[in-house]
Design a protein around this nucleic acid. Structure first.
Lengths: 302, 302
DNA sequence: TACCGTTATAATTATTAGTTATAGCTGTAT
DNA sequence: ATACAGCTATAACTAATAATTATAACGGTA
């Protein structure tokens, strides 16, 4: 019986679904299925009632749930107590992040992390992928969050995938764009376009995508290069052109209606975010905790 | 982080030694070493001070010890609560055992198990290996403990090794034997010898051993066959002959000096005890617990 | 009745935890 | 001093476990 079992179990009990829990835990649904079966076998009792609309706890399941939560809480407490025994030097966590992720999803995750580990002294450095990589190499960061693929990542850096995202074309919420959900490559070529500066991870992903479609950057009508995602979003909102952005990074603007997202006809540009660090050994405790947290279910990519 | 990690950790902390804990947990010393390293890496702190005389807890180690014990206790409680939800039919555990093990080591283990799971309704059936196997096949036992190798074990039975033992020649604590610690094969041939009945696991092990030494049972001076280990021990104590017995089964008599053990010159007959059952699926909860208990550190083979 | 969303199963692969064998260290006794 | 006994660490290998993807099977709803 392992703590990850309990975490899976609690997550399933909470969301009442194997498949939803799987998503939240960055696992496949059969993985959850198998481990819950293992638990049921271990305790010799059915823990969930299955139905086509999800699962519910059995009486024994409720009991296990109660204890599992308690055990996980105890273990959390243990980790916090260990942290409080650390020197203050070891409580420092300097996180690097590219603009895309550092300005949107990450601050919220850091907030949640900080709630769980209040003694952590966190600093967030937001720069483009190129600069973040340099800082990482220079030991000025404990770890970094970047888009993937990022070319030019030295081999001696370790990286783990944490989440998936896709590139969207962003437009002002006005005619003609607000009446459409897609845009063709030809239209992209003609429209005034704003892109990130060279060295940006997002720009690199975009460049690779259009290359694979047989186009070049020069085919576009690029009106400006900007080194800030927020600046680009403001420019697009103002109706001065189109640009590209990640879905997660524009979530808020899409929700509030200040930006209108478009997908490219017949194409989709998927990419992932990676957590990158020099080596397992180079990590201090807080950094290890942060990685576990980010890979775990508690990290809200919001 | 897994409960087995905590069990290992607690056992090491308790006995202050990796190698001793390894023996108690039926594991190799490097296995303990690796897992403790894993823990130290996980928490990012050293948990034990190593020395050539064993290990002691560090300050952080003490903290982990405190929590680990608490977590294991909680989980024990959970298992007990689950058991108390079972129907009384599922609380019945019928254990079969061969004479060798059923009369010596097992009762004590059952006693300890019963302390931990008081709701278990245990019955112990002691017969020879042949009969136990038959009862197991006939579903009259939940599980059985036998010597290994036992020939004629049907393929559909599952078996796991739980402990090692060796065959000893037992003699009365009188001249000439009490002045010696070994006996030659030639001397064995001449001495009056008592053996277990055909169908006994211990007899089978003995027969196989002497066959491998190029002898036959007929070469011995067999004065009686007896179907009870206790009867044989009494007979030997009375000075009426020599016999063979397992080390564990004669522990008490050796300690109290009523029987004198001899090893056979240049030979040693090792064997193991196995826990045997029909299939994983055929086991009720209590039987599963018992197997985990017997394989775990708490089972005192005394 | 077809379809969407659910869990289960099968085949495969990667990771982890165990094994044995051996090295290296340290305190004790010859 | 030196060999030894007892301990933990390391290396090479193997077995068991937990993931993956792909697909099936089932149930409720349009």
């Amino acid at each position: 019986m392992n703590l990850p079992h309990f975490e899976m179990f609690c997550e399933v009990a909470r969301v009442k679904s194997f498949s939803k829990a799987a998503k939240l835990l960055h696992l496949s649904q059969p993985a959850i299925s198998a481990q819950i079966h293992y638990l049921e076998d271990y305790y010799g009792m059915q823990l969930f009632h299955r139905s086509s609309s999800g699962v519910t706890l059995t009486a024994v399941g409720e009991l296990v749930y109660k204890y599992a939560k308690e055990i996980l809480k105890l273990h959390d407490e243990l980790e916090n107590e260990i942290d409080s025994m650390l020197q203050s030097e070891n409580q420092k966590l300097i996180i690097g992040a590219s603009s895309t992720i550092g300005n949107s999803a990450l601050p919220c995750s850091i907030w949640t992390f900080k709630e769980k580990y209040p003694q952590a002294q966190i600093r967030l450095e937001v720069h483009n992928a190129e600069r973040i990589t340099a800082l990482l190499n220079d030991n000025q960061l404990n770890l970094a969050l970047l888009e993937n693929p990022v070319s030019g990542l030295p081999d001696d850096l370790v990286s783990q995938s944490i989440s998936n995202d896709e590139l969207l074309v962003i437009a002002p919420p006005k005619k003609p764009w607000n009446e459409r959900t897609t845009i063709s490559l030809e239209e992209i070529k003609k429209a005034p376009f704003i892109i990130r500066e060279s060295g940006s991870g997002l720009r690199q992903i975009f460049e690779e995508a259009i290359t694979s479609w047989g186009m070049k950057l020069e085919d576009l009508n690029i009106v400006t290069e900007m080194s800030s995602t927020s600046a680009i979003k403001s420019t697009v909102e103002a109706g001065l052109g189109l640009s590209i952005c990640s879905r997660i990074a524009t979530q808020k603007e899409i929700r509030t209606g200040t930006i209108h997202p478009l997908t490219i006809e017949g194409k989709s540009v998927k990419f992932s975010y990676q957590i990158v660090y020099k080596s397992e050994k180079s990590l201090n405790n807080i950094a290890k905790r942060f990685i576990r947290f980010i890979l775990g279910p508690g990290a809200p990519f919001c």
